[in-house]
Design a protein around this nucleic acid. Sequence first.
DNA 1: CTGTTAGCGCGTTCAG
DNA 2: CTGAACGCGCTAACAG
Lengths: 336, 336
Amino acid sequence: MKRNVTVKTLAEQLNISIATVSKALSDSHEISAETKQRVLDLARTLNYERNPAASNLRSHRTSTIAVIIPDVANNFFSLAIKGIEEIARTHNHHVLIYQTHEDSAAEIAFTNSLISGRVDGILISVTRSAGNLAHFQSLIRQIPVVFFDRSIEIPDAFSITTDDYESAYQATRHLAEKGCRKIIFLQGLDRLATGQRRLRGYLDALNDSGLEQLQPVALAANTDPQLIRDGIRQAIIGEKPDGVLSSIEEFVVPCYYVCRELGIDMPGALKLVSFSNLPTAPLLHPALSTITQPAFEMGRVAASCLFQILHKREVDLLSLPGLHSQLIERESSALV
Amino acid sequence: MKRNVTVKTLAEQLNISIATVSKALSDSHEISAETKQRVLDLARTLNYERNPAASNLRSHRTSTIAVIIPDVANNFFSLAIKGIEEIARTHNHHVLIYQTHEDSAAEIAFTNSLISGRVDGILISVTRSAGNLAHFQSLIRQIPVVFFDRSIEIPDAFSITTDDYESAYQATRHLAEKGCRKIIFLQGLDRLATGQRRLRGYLDALNDSGLEQLQPVALAANTDPQLIRDGIRQAIIGEKPDGVLSSIEEFVVPCYYVCRELGIDMPGALKLVSFSNLPTAPLLHPALSTITQPAFEMGRVAASCLFQILHKREVDLLSLPGLHSQLIERESSALV
DNA sequence: CTGTTAGCGCGTTCAG
DNA sequence: CTGAACGCGCTAACAG
C-alpha cells in the first residue's frame, strides 16, 4: 500500500510550507495567484484528495447533510431525495439517508447519532407516530434542521410543505360538486401538523358546501393492515358515506376491499379522492382521483432552505417558490 | 455554547485514563466488566457521542458506505437502497447516496471523491454509458467495491446480479410459445455485462425455438426520446416483428406510441415483454408482460456481501442466496 | 486489567 | 505574502 498524498507531500515537493498549501487549496486571499496555481497543478497530477476526517475534525464542517424519512421505496420520498441530492451536489455536499419505518425510536436514535458532528444539517420528514415534540425542540437548537412535507408544530422551526389545507379543501369541494352529500375523512396523520391542515381544509369545505360535519376517522398510526381495514369498515357501515377523502395513500386499497366486501359500487355509490404520490394510481384504480404532491420540487426547496441556513444567510421562507399539489382526476389521465 | 463531552470528560469524572475510556466504549476485551459499566453509564447520563471525525482520522474506519446509482427515483433503485440501508443499519453503518444520471463523468468524480477515506466501501450500479473499464479496475484496488445489477466485466470484482440470462431466455421462450415467430430484442445496456447476458439468453432461446436469429436493436444509451422512438420505428418497419423483448423499461412507452402510429394492434399483432421494475406496469399496459427483478433482495445481498468483505471474511459468493427475476404476465396480475 | 505516549491530516493562530 | 507550531478527539502500540 503506497502512502497517501497529503498536504505534507505537496508542501515537500514544492518546497513551501504545509500551511501555504492548505491556504492555497482553500483559495485563501492571502496566497499569490502563482503559488495557488502551482499547488493546484501538483495536487491534480498527484491525485490529491483532502482527507475529509481531518478536515472535519479541525474545521467542524462535514460537507454532509442527512435526510431522514420514513421509507425510501416510496414514490414521494424517493423523488424528494432525488431533488435533495441534486441541490446538495451543486453545493458540493454529500447526502446521508436514514429510514425510520415510521418508528419514532429509530428517529430519535438517528438524530442523536447525528448531533455529534457527523453532518452539517438535517432534512427530515417525521414519523407519523411522532409525539416527541420535546425531542425535536431540543434537536433544532443543536443543529440546523428543515422539516419537509410531514412537519410538526414548533415555533422557529423551518418547515417546507405544500398547500395541504387548500388541496384538501379543493378535493372535498370537488367531491361535493360530483354529487357527494356525505363525505368522510380518513385521517392517518393526526399527530402531525400536516394532517391537521388537511383536516381543516376538509372541514371548511364541508361547511362551505353546506354539508354535514363528520368526525374524522382516525386510523391507527401503526401499520397493522387488519386494524386499518376494520376502522374503515366500521366507518363505512356506520356513516354510509358517498364520498371519501383519504389523507394518505395507504388507505386506498383497504378501502377498496372493504367496499367490495360490502357490495358497494365504488365509482357509483362511493367516490374516493386520496392524497397520493404514486402518479399512476388513478390508472390502477378506476374509481380513484388523487392529490399529488410536487415531491421533487419539495426536496429541492427544502435542501435550498437548509443551505441558506448553513451559509448563515437570512432565510426568507416567503421568497421560496410556492408548492402546490395537483388534483388528478381519473377522467383526465391518459396512458403514461 | 457549552463544551462538548469527550472521552477526556468521562476519564476525568471517573478518575481513569482516556485510553481506558476509549477501550471501554469499544467494548474491548481487556477492560473489566465493572469499568465498562461505569463508563457506559456515565456516557449515557452525559449524552456522550463519539466524535466520528476524530475516530475516523485515527482508525481509518468510517462506518459509512456509499451507494452510487443512476437515479434514486426509480422503483428498482429505491427498493435496492431500502435493502441496503436496512443491512447497513444492522452493521451500524451510515449510507451515502449519489446519483449519476447515467453520466459516467459524474460516476468518476464521485468515486474519486470517495477514495480519500470518506467511506469504507462502495456499492455501485454502473452507468449504462460506461466504458471506463480502466477506471473501475483501478478503483477496486483502492477500496472495497460491490457491483449490483448493472455490472461490468472485471475479473476479481464482486458483482451481484440476477439470472439475466435465464430470464431473457424464459421470456423469449414465453413469446415463442404464445405464437410469436419473429421476435426482436431492444438492447439498452449493450456496454454492460448485464445487457450481454440478456442478449445471450434471447439468442439462445431463439435458437432453441427454431426461430430466426436477428440483430439486436441497439438503442442510444443517452436519453434522447426522439432517437429512441426513431430506432424502434425503424426496427419495427424493417423487421415486422410479432414479438418484442425489451432489455429496459424505458423502451416500453416509445414502443407503444410507435405501434399506435403504425396502426399495429399491440396485444394481437405484437406482444411485448420488458425487463421492468415498476410492479404495476402490467396493469397499466394491457399488452405488456414484465420481467421483474428482486430489487430489495438484491440490495440486501449486495450490502451483505460488502460487509463480509469489510469484515475481512472470505466472501463465498456461492453462499449468498440466489436472486431470480419473475415473469409477470398480464393475465395473472390482480389489482394490487 | 489499566495507563502512557504518540500521532492520524488538517486548519488556524501568530510571527516573520 | 509565507511558515512554524499547536491541537481538534480519538485510538494503536506499548508498558506496567
